[in-house]
């Protein structure tokens, strides 16, 4: 597969390490009430869609950026690639 890196342009997916569902960005607060349940859901309850999927890829043999790649799991068509840092900030993550 070819991942169109937002900074570096098209790069072979072989240069990347796959992690999984981009929902992993939305880590719960570990000091909040009910954190055990929240973390359980966060870590173990994920959708496995046949179709569009937002997922985390790490450009290990490139610039070491984490990307959020929107990929169709049926066709491998990639429709969007974003820097994970931008996605994380958009979701309100900070420090």
């Amino acid at each position: 597969m070819i991942i169109n890196h937002p900074i570096l342009g098209p790069r072979d997916a072989q240069e990347f390490v796959y992690l999984g569902d981009a929902g992993l960005i939305e880590r719960p607060d570990g000091l909040a009430e009910g954190a055990v349940d929240a973390f359980h859901d966060y870590l173990y309850l994920r959708d496995n869609p046949a179709g569009e999927h937002r997922e985390l890829w790490y450009h290990e043999q490139g610039d070491r950026s984490w990307l959020v790649v929107t990929r169709n799991t049926l066709t491998h068509e990639i429709t969007r690639v974003e820097l994970a840092r931008d996605v994380a900030r958009a979701k309100g993550r900070s420090k």
């Binding site: 985390l56 790490y58 070491r64 950026s65 984490w66 900070s94 420090k95």
Partner: peptide, 19 residues
């Protein structure tokens, strides 16, 4: 060594982007 570095980058970029 490689895995830890990857996970540190993950924490830095995906979890704590403003650190």
């Amino acid at each position: 060594a490689v895995l830890v570095f990857r996970n540190l980058e993950y924490a830095r970029q995906c979890l704590y982007p403003d650190m």
